[in-house]
Design a protein around this nucleic acid. Structure first.
Length: 336
DNA sequence: AAGACAGACAACCGCGACCGG
DNA sequence: ACCGGTCGCGGTTGTCTGTCT
């Protein structure tokens, strides 16, 4: 039931592949190729459906498969790519030679679970912890994380450029280092990942029960950003988190990190999971049009940002939350 | 030593896209 | 334009294995 037409025949074996089956498939593919997968099982003498053969070949038997643990570079790349394209594993896999979408998907899912299993916030900030949404299953958490990922289909064609440039950014993207911009990012190119294991205390203005009730996540993140000494925890071991804003789409870049409190993350915020990319000039134009307080405008629905001069208040957050499709992230930013 | 548990990995399932008739 | 077959993708489940109690 529910099988594909190619799998409807009787005697179709399922489950794990035996070494003999593997050998048959390898022998057939290497001598004949796999023009039509639906014909492969019969011609190869396998009692499998073509789909199963294809999967087995692509995910396991292919000669160029690269097995073993993911390297730190691969991890960084996966994280960056996932933040850009979301759960498009095949697309991500296409940028990691020898890795399969299935492998990356499995890796990501287990990695997500690992991260989520960490307590959301330390016991020292129980008010924030209790304000977080209930965490029940890894699946729902992954879905919640997915919600934070910005749909980025429009920029997909720019992926290669983004990767090659962003991952090659220098460790710090200071204000004076505007010579390696990810200039191909579109005008609206928010990017953000976070780790809820950060341990911070929220500012008093955000710890009221009402604010927590209404803005659990934003309250938390904003509080995290505001905390003295705040530093995004690494999403990948050994890789510092960082943030950056920069012009994109207009060819002019202003990059900065070093949020107050010593966020000394690497500028490739997109490489290590903390960051925001936003077209600065367009942002200014929008602010002129909208006014500083109107964050729920349609044009801001996919923005995730912190702001140079916008004070973080519950009302701001409320407006942001109501208008955000992806995620908004904002707070006073006092870099130069 | 044995059972419970969690993580890693393999495989399946359903759906949508594509293509040729 | 429609339809059926095929393929590719992403989500989900199943299984194995290592670790902990």
């Amino acid at each position: 039931m529910g099988h594909h037409s190619c799998c409807n025949q009787q005697k179709v074996k399922r489950g794990l592949w035996s070494p003999e089956e593997d050998e048959k498939l390898i022998r057939y593919i290497t001598t004949h190729g796999y023009g039509c997968w639906s014909e492969v099982p019969e011609k190869a003498g396998l009692q499998r459906c073509g789909k199963s053969c294809r999967l087995r070949w692509i995910n396991y038997l292919r000669p160029d498969i690269r097995r073993g643990r993911f390297t730190a570079e691969e991890e960084k790349l996966i994280i960056s790519l996932h933040a850009i394209v979301g759960n498009r594993w095949a697309h991500i896999a296409s940028h990691l030679p020898g890795r399969t979408d299935n492998e990356i998907k499995n890796y990501w899912n287990s990695w997500i679970k690992k991260k989520i299993r960490k307590p959301a916030v330390s016991t020292t900030s129980s008010s924030v912890t209790t304000s977080s949404p209930p965490r029940s299953t890894a699946a729902s958490d992954a879905a919640a994380l997915g919600h934070l990922q910005t749909p980025f289909g429009a920029a997909e064609h720019q992926l290669d450029a983004i990767i090659s440039q962003s991952l090659a950014l220098p460790p710090k993207l200071g204000a004076g280092q505007a010579d390696s911009p990810p200039a191909l990012l579109p005008p609206h190119c928010p990017f953000f990942m976070f780790d809820t294991s950060v341990s911070v205390s929220p500012p008093p203005s955000l710890t009221s029960p009402a604010a927590q009730l209404q803005l659990p996540f934003l309250t938390f993140t904003a509080a995290a950003m505001d905390a003295p000494g705040f530093q995004l925890p690494p999403l990948v071991d050994g890789i510092d988190m960082g943030m950056a804003t920069m012009d994109c789409g207009l060819g002019e870049e202003r990059g900065h990190d070093d949020h107050e409190g010593g966020n000394n993350g690497q500028a490739a915020g997109m490489a290590n999971g903390g960051g925001c990319f936003y077209g600065q000039q367009q942002k200014q134009q929008e602010e002129e049009q909208l006014g500083q307080d109107q964050w729920d405008d349609e044009s801001a629905q996919h923005l995730l940002m912190w702001d140079d001069d916008q004070e973080l208040t519950p009302s701001n957050l409320e407006a942001m939350e109501s208008g955000a499709h992806s995620l908004l992230f904002m707070g006073p930013n006092d870099h130069a």
